[in-house]
């Protein structure tokens, strides 16, 4: 059971980081995204902000993924510690 939860935690953390990488790769979560717009008369480019949510490493994905990794790692360590304890020999 402990091993299953640990593996699930690590898979969830990896999934979150992959999702972040694919969707934004931004350090901070954005609530507006910059799009470049070209002026047809002058040929200049300007930035237009559009309401859009892009999940960032902070404060969203980073802390959650880190917690999941810590929990997963701790469960693995705990399981290994229990396994390494000398077994009581019943005479």
């Amino acid at each position: 059971m402990t091993k299953t939860i640990a593996i699930l935690c690590i898979i969830a953390a990896a999934g979150l980081i992959a999702w972040w990488g694919v969707t934004s790769g931004e350090l901070w979560t954005l609530d507006k995204v910059a799009y470049t717009v070209t002026d047809p008369l002058f040929g200049t480019e300007s930035i237009e902000w559009r309401e859009e949510f892009r999940v960032g490493l902070l404060p969203a994905v980073g802390p959650v993924a880190a917690t999941l990794l810590v929990v997963g790692g701790f469960l693995f360590w705990k399981r290994r510690r229990i396994q390494m304890k000398p077994q009581a020999v019943i005479a």
Binding site: A34, S46, I47, E48
Partner: peptide, 20 residues
């Protein structure tokens, strides 16, 4: 006439910020 805008970039070791 056209979109009047200042765009600016802060490029620091830990974070790059694009703003207007």
């Amino acid at each position: 006439v056209g979109k009047n805008q200042f765009t600016w970039v802060s490029d620091a070791p830990l974070e790059k910020i694009n703003g207007t």
